[in-house]
Amino acid sequence: MKKNIAIVWGGYSSEKEVSEKSAEGIYSFIDKDKYNAYKVKIDRKSWEVEHRGNIYSIDKNDFSFTADGWTTKFDFAYITIHGTPGEDGTLQGYFDMLGIPYSNCGVLASAVTFSKFTCNHFLKSFNIKVADSVILHKNSDYSADEIVQQLGLPLFVKPNAGGSSFATYKVKSIEEIDPAIAEAFGEASDVIIESFVSGTEVTCGCYKTDKGTTVLPISEVVTHNEFFDYNAKYKGQVEEITPARISEELSQKISRETMLIYDLVNAKGIIRADYIISNDEPVLLEVNTTPGMTATSFIPQQVAAANLSMTQVLTEIIECEYYKLKK
């Protein structure tokens, strides 16, 4: 009998539209001969599933839906919500309580990695190089002069918990700091401010199943924008080169570091670690535990460069996590 797979998308943040595209990508990749795939949208207004052209409400008591007098329960959740509640551990806790296996990191790993400041300082204690940074909480006092003295200019202002470069700014003057912080607070309750690191941006995907750890070929990010912003990511203003044009020695170093990060945060499923190569050393930007999964996203590109199939990779992850929980 086929397993019922919920592809969970939506969320409460500006990344909802990106999540929808990832859900479409995952739906296209999933083996329909092996699984019944359903797209389940979660937002603040409703939880609903698309089935045979109709929309049905999800019963939150057991994560099921009823159509034509028949109740369908899900065997597995493939979470592709970028942002809360799918990337911060909230939804993971819900599925843990229901005993439903899912595709990505557990509660603790999701919560830790969702906070850029917390994750980077945790990994820094294991000698992973990260940019210098400060964190601001809502309504906390700060001095733009002191921030510049500590981090220099230019610097980056970002929501501490968020992605897709929403409300992310490269600040070149002290006058730009206050407006950038205000915009970032519009996306999250905490704001991270990071020193600028010059170099080549690369990203590396990694996943682990019962067959072992797979580190994917590294991608290089080339954009003529100020940085890898929303327009570069989603409006084609970027060149993405896989494999990256870096030395074999540096490639192996980044691969080893990504594997180490995977184990340190106790990750599950597919993650992606983003770096800046500065003076031949990788500097970690952030760990993404719910990477984009459209046909042109980095992970599908890297899977193709590794001569692997997205369908087979997703099947391995689903089967591994399903039987791990059901043992």
Rank of each mutant, 00 (worst) to 15 (best):
N139M: 06
I79C: 01
T113W: 01
G152W: 10
L153D: 13
A67V: 08
F122M: 15
I128R: 06
N127L: 07
K158G: 10
T71N: 06
T72R: 04
S143Q: 07
G89E: 02
A131H: 06
Q150D: 09
P85K: 05
Q92W: 01
F117G: 11
L151A: 12
E87R: 05
N127D: 15
K129L: 12
P159C: 06
I81M: 00
N104H: 14
H121A: 04
Q92G: 02
N120I: 07
N104F: 01
D145G: 03
S165V: 07
I79N: 05
D145C: 03
T84G: 08
L91W: 04
E146I: 07
L123Q: 12
F117M: 11
K129P: 01
V157T: 03
C119N: 07
L136D: 09
L98M: 14
W70C: 13
C119H: 00
T71A: 04
F166D: 13
V134Y: 12
D141W: 03
A161H: 04
F126Y: 15
F76V: 02
D145A: 13
L136Q: 09
K129S: 12
Y142L: 03
H121I: 01
A144F: 10
V112C: 05
H82F: 05
A144Q: 08
V148H: 13
I79E: 03
L153N: 10
A144V: 06
E87I: 01
V134Q: 14
F63V: 02
D132T: 05
S133V: 03
D132P: 10
S165N: 12
I79D: 02
A77D: 06
T84Y: 03
D88C: 05
N160W: 05
V148W: 13
P159V: 04
K116H: 08
K116D: 08
D141C: 05
S133E: 14
C105P: 00
K116L: 06
F156I: 15
S103L: 03
Q149G: 13
N120V: 11
I79P: 01
D62P: 04
H121Q: 15
T113I: 04
Q149S: 15
S115N: 10
F76P: 07
N160R: 06
P85L: 04
A144L: 06
K158Q: 07
D62G: 00
F63M: 03
F95R: 06
F126I: 04
V107Q: 09
Y102N: 07
A77W: 02
W70K: 12
F166K: 13
G89Y: 02
N104Y: 00
I100G: 03
N139F: 10
L108E: 12
F76G: 09
F156M: 14
G86N: 09
G83P: 03
D96E: 15
C105A: 13
F117C: 09
T80G: 12
Y94M: 09
T90I: 09
P159M: 05
I147V: 10
A109C: 11
I58A: 05
I58E: 05
F65M: 01
